[in-house]
Design a protein around this nucleic acid. Structure first.
Length: 304
DNA sequence: AGCCAGGAAAGCG
DNA sequence: CGCTTTCATGGC
């Protein structure tokens, strides 16, 4: 088992259960209580928290052929592959937590409260495709149901693995989703989202669009517009993908919870693009990180 | 039973 | 353009 420092306060369980990812299973493994799941198409890994700033994982650092997706992601974002553990990259352990918090607006007592509620919350960095696909299936759904949909799609169209006496499934590739067809996807309780997921998968399978191009786009605006070309992707989901999949921590998704927070705690009556613009300006270069504290606090803590 | 859920596309005026 | 309706499904 590989021992990793988390580089600041970290809470594994809250991070994996804060609505950024929807497929990690709590299991016991080699005397540790932790989480197991797939990252991209690689075999499942196990992660457990062993201290306030320490985790252990079965994932090995920078091993050739392991976690091609995670390695590619790091290369795209940093221009080089550092000696990094794919799990550390996935969990955003390289983000400078203290420096990020220093950029948040001063005298914002509500945000301070939200951070104090769960200081170990991090932004994950998922493989872009599974992030995009999962959030396409998330529209107008509750977190628990998004989880169900993810599992159903994985079971039916993903790769099956065995680990610790259980079975795990990778997220199906665009090819697998496209091959399944819209009708089969509908049987996974997707409803009207089946069409969007199918069309998006087909565009990628046909090479009409390449998600690897996303990392090369300089501005958030360009990347945002790039994602909005997919059926079923509007402003909110595009921002989720930028934030949870592309490591663009300035992206600020506004969902019903965040809108509620901005209305109640910040007394903002603005709507749509105006509210979006205000939030991005107010919370600053790491607005997305602030958003995650607010979202988690509002959803699991006490709002109003 | 009725309402709401991490919205977006299509259809209006 | 900006506003309204429609789209499936499950949980409470």
């Amino acid at each position: 088992m590989n021992r990793l420092s988390t580089n600041g306060p970290f809470d594994l369980a809250e991070t994996l259960n804060s609505g950024q990812v929807f497929h990690w299973d709590e299991i016991d493994f080699e005397g540790h209580s932790g989480f197991a799941g797939c990252i991209g198409n690689s075999p499942p890994v196990f992660i457990a928290q062993t201290g306030p700033e320490e985790i252990v994982t079965t994932a090995e650092t920078n091993q050739q052929g392991l976690f091609a997706e995670a390695t590619l992601l790091v290369r795209e974002q940093t221009g080089s592959v550092r000696q990094t553990n794919p799990v550390a990259s996935y969990l955003g352990l390289d983000l400078p937590v203290e420096r990020i918090r220093a950029t948040f607006p001063e005298n914002d007592e509500f945000l301070k409260e939200a951070i104090h509620y769960c200081p170990g919350l991090r932004m994950v960095r998922q493989p872009v495709w599974e992030c995009l696909a999962t959030f396409i299936t998330s529209s107008l759904k509750q977190v628990a149901h998004i989880r169900d949909i993810s599992l159903t799609l994985r079971r039916r169209f993903g790769n099956r693995y065995e680990f610790a006496g259980r079975e795990f499934f990778s997220y199906p590739t665009p090819e697998a989703i496209a091959a399944a067809g819209e009708a089969e996807l509908r049987k996974c309780a997707l409803g009207y989202r089946a069409k969007s997921l199918f069309l998006t998968a087909r565009m990628l399978k046909d090479g009409e669009v390449d998600l690897a191009d996303l990392a090369r786009l300089e501005s958030n605006r360009e990347a945002h517009d790039f994602l909005c070309r997919f059926h079923g992707v509007g402003g909110k989901i595009a921002n989720c993908v930028l934030l949870f999949g592309c490591g663009r921590v300035d992206a600020f998704p506004i969902d019903v919870w965040i809108e509620r927070v901005l209305r109640k705690a910040y007394r903002k009556r603005l709507k749509g693009p105006k509210l979006q613009a205000w939030a991005e300006g107010y919370f600053g270069p790491f607005a997305g990180y602030a958003q995650q504290f607010l979202f988690h606090y509002a959803r699991t803590g006490k709002l109003d």
